[in-house]
Design a protein around this nucleic acid. Structure first.
Lengths: 227, 227, 227, 227
DNA sequence: TATGAATGAGTTTTCATTCAT
DNA sequence: GATGAATGAAAACTCATTCAT
């Protein structure tokens, strides 16, 4: 459960089946498997996603979602019996968005551990600046997760995937001698995650640009300098 | 505007006039200047604060606030014409809470800069664990601040006070030779703030205990180790 | 219009043309003149009939009718433009059910009047116990008939047929000397009808078994004992 | 649970406490114990009662109830959180109406059993003709009771009170020699109830005037003539 | 014929706010 | 000051019906 996103390596995690195949995936030449109904659902979910980013859950109104998607309110309920069902799909959509930030299989096959980290920092910086709404919606979900178990477990799982990936990168770095021997892997994972969550949250909240690469330098020092 | 709290040194900042004189301050022997009406207001604000922590703004209902404060809904509106007025007072109350976390004037008169930082980390850790609702309400306010200018400026100001204090501590550390010469003060302030925001947010969101002192070690390394 | 059913002698009443040829009739060897559409209609009417018995008109939903009949809601409207049209057919179906309770032509050719009455009481008892839903739906229709003229006249006609039959039986009984001379036919018809309506309604409403034959004894006393 | 009403002798049954003190009772000189809120509630219940009689549960709309009572729909919900709560009060109101049909304590102190029965038949006849809506609403409730347990038990209780009273009257008649010895009390109670239910139901459904006193003659024959 | 999709008009219910006392 | 009562406006959700295919 968490504020900052998950960083994906395809071969490391099980991509759960999801309705949300993101644009890049869509472009991958598959035939049109999306029915008309799927399109409608997607446009409703997208509208809800945007409205949550703009107005928060507090002011999320089904009527507005329907209007933005260009359909009647009854049509919305044709696809999503309850408002909660729509929100659940927004959660799935957001998770897919974050997962799609990860690198594609084969893409970084011979990258060094540090290059992995560098990509992680850079891609988070890019998203934070170019798609801040992702993090706003995430923050909304984090607060909702305090009361909603299903959201809580979805976010926790995303966090776990992220940790798993970081553990793998750090372990590799230690094995290859790039990182210091005797590094406390679990502690280091925590440090990286806390820094990245802090950086994105700080940027979203203050709208000040945060220097992600500067933070990467600090992380490098932790990873390499002797105790 | 911000997630993590502000760390106060009384002589450094201008304490804005506020209805919220917290308990410690209250005890300071002033005569009972609080009228019956002030008590009522305070109990309403407290009830609202708790309900926001428990249910979020999304499910904050004036009737419930009134009920928890033990008064009629019309009485609530006697004191707070609009719901927003009540929320504004909750904001003021929360800021006062955070400000009260700071040290009292004279208390740390001859502390070293590192001792200042250490206290900051420890008191945030304590609050995060003992009064998590403070950070939950803060997170709710952060999201609201994206749409509400008055909240935004209140939070920004709190952030600024915090930065000012950190600048002062770091500057002092450099001057006294405790911290490395040539340290980029502004960058370091950012780093500390990002780490503390990340740490508190991570703890609230995942309910895992975060090791604040571990992070203090990282900060020390930044402050002392040569580039 | 009425609660209790009509007791039919085929040669006494004009069987109105109706889509509802009940099972016994169906078996009578006619070739399959029912088209596919008729089958669909019948299954929809049957589903509606059951749902009215189970949930009442208050909770009768066309979608549920369609679902139970295994067709799409649009298909239902293909056959029945309005919900009312479907209900009209349910009325026709129920009347056919009640009429089918009567004896077949020739079946009781040389039965005595008392035997006629006995059969009437017994067959109502049987139906009330084995097919209570018939009477539940009838009760629903009776209430609707207070606002719906077409239902009202259908029920009134059924009552009339019943009265006509009873008049015939009683007249025959007087003529043959089985019943007392000077019997007020119209009043006696009323008495029998009221008793049978009361008995079925009481049984449906309280779920207690009612002793129909006990009531037949009372009726016999009325029919035979001197004033 | 039942169609026809309950016949009350005050000293025989426990009058359950009820919000509904009917007009006669009201007139009994008590001081104005009804608050403003009680009046509002009563007027809403009355409006609902009338609308159920006119349109049935099927078409009962809270908005119409509110309009008829001359209040805003939100006011209705101020008094009755859910529609069902309003309906529950209508049930209580109707039961009170039926109970008020009974004779007052002391009124028939030295009446003979037959006079008791005669009054019962006459007062039911009067109500059926003058206040048919009572029986219409009762019929609506009977149907609802098939799905609603609380209504079911309320109606069953009313039936029980009625039976208890009839048992008492018949027992008294046998004891005084007015009715035949060896009469099966339980069976006779059933007969009277079935006849009265049948009579009222028949009258409501067909709008034909039913001769209650004629039925009383039949009952007398049952009560007095030898087997 | 049959249906998935869509919708207008309504339904109950909620909620911040107001008003008379 | 304080409150019980009242309300307008809106919320989520429903349902018979229609339409394009």
């Amino acid at each position: 459960m968490d504020f900052v996103c998950y960083y994906l390596i395809n071969h490391l995690i099980d991509r759960r089946e999801s309705t949300y195949m993101l644009d890049d995936a869509d472009k991958q030449g598959e035939k049109a498997y999306t029915t008309h109904g799927d399109e409608r659902k997607r446009s409703l979910v997208l509208a809800a996603y945007q409205l949550i980013a703009e107005r928060g859950f507090e002011e999320l109104r089904t009527r507005e979602v329907a209007k933005r998607a260009g359909v009647n309110i009854a049509t919305l309920h044709y696809y999503f019996a309850r408002k909660e069902d729509l929100i659940a799909e927004v959660v799935a959509y957001l998770l897919a968005l974050f997962r799609s930030m990860g690198v594609e299989e084969g893409e970084m096959e011979d990258a060094t551990p540090l290059e992995h980290l560098r990509l992680m920092f850079l891609s988070l910086q890019k998203s934070t600046q170019e798609s801040p709404e992702m993090f706003v919606v995430l923050a909304e979900l984090v607060l909702r997760s305090l009361r909603d178990h299903s959201i809580q477990s979805a976010l926790l799982q995303m966090d776990d995937e992220w940790r798993k990936y970081l553990r793998w990168v750090i372990g590799m770095g230690i094995g290859q001698g790039e990182f210091r021997q005797g590094l406390d892997v679990e502690k280091t994972v925590d440090e990286i995650i806390v820094i990245l969550k802090g950086a994105t949250y700080h940027q979203i909240a203050t709208r000040r640009e945060v220097d992600f690469l500067g933070f990467l330098e600090d992380v490098k020092r932790i990873l390499t300098s002797p105790e």
